[in-house]
């Protein structure tokens, strides 16, 4: 794991050559031994952060499991009644494509393909925005108008059991937490695009791009589970 061989502790690049492209000028912070340790450390930190994110969502999955155990028929019916699987499926495809493009963007950075890097990041951001657009304008707003909102404020007249509001609570809270992650992810990707436009990502330095990519994949991962559980099998 960590390199324990004695090293100078002064980093590998004694002076930064201004003629180098920006991505080669990156120098690790002084407490790291070299750029690679810094990169590996940052990535380990990101993975640990991702575990916390997964466990944050595990609470929603736990609530879902319990109430589906208790009211399986109600939930299955409510799932088909209140949610439109087509929008969910389209959003799934969009997120999968965005995951692919962000993986490509990291590959572009590794290969020093600056133009393709920016294009792929841009496509990823567009996918994220499309997801939010579909979510808000084809799901959230119509549902609010029809009163299909969580808990006590539920006022949709066609409810068939006392647990319909509960299903909607799980749906709203899970997708809202997920949606807030999409918003954060889009913001981070936009920041990465800005950094990329300064040519600061390249074969030897793309730490933040890789970590934002990992975060974006997490957003995709959560949706991979939320989609079938909420929209298909209730």
């Amino acid at each position: 794991m960590s390199s324990n061989t004695p090293q100078s502790g002064e980093g590998f690049a004694p002076a930064v050559d201004p003629s180098l492209p920006p991505w080669q000028r990156h120098k690790h912070q002084p407490h790291w031994r070299n750029n690679d340790d810094e990169y590996q450390g940052a990535k380990l930190g990101m993975w640990l952060f991702l575990t916390t994110e997964l466990l944050l969502f595990s609470g929603m999955f736990c609530a879902y499991t319990i109430f589906r155990m208790l009211h399986s028929e109600d939930f299955e019916r409510a799932s088909h009644k209140y949610l439109d699987w087509e929008i969910g499926a389209i959003n799934t495809v969009v997120l999968l494509i965005s995951s692919f493009t962000v993986a490509l963007a990291i590959r572009n950075a590794q290969m020093n393909q600056q133009r393709a890097l920016k294009i792929n990041l841009f496509i990823t951001i567009l996918c994220g925005l499309f997801f939010l657009f579909a979510k808000i304008f084809y799901e959230y707003i119509p549902k609010i108008q029809e009163g299909k909102v969580p808990g006590a404020n539920f006022s949709y007249a066609g409810a068939e059991s006392a647990y319909d509001p509960l299903f909607m609570s799980i749906y709203w809270v899970s997708t809202a937490i997920h949606g807030s992650h999409v918003v954060i992810g889009v913001g981070l990707l936009a920041w990465c695009l800005w950094v990329a436009s300064k040519r600061r990502y390249g074969p030897t330095h793309y730490t933040s791009l890789e970590n934002v990519g990992l975060f974006w994949h997490l957003v995709d991962l959560i949706w991979i589970f939320l989609f079938p559980l909420l929209y298909l099998v209730g």
Partner: peptide, 11 residues
């Protein structure tokens, strides 16, 4: 990176 490549396969 000088001397840093003793980790086996990584990122």
């Amino acid at each position: 990176h000088g001397g840093a490549d003793d980790h086996g396969s990584h990122g």
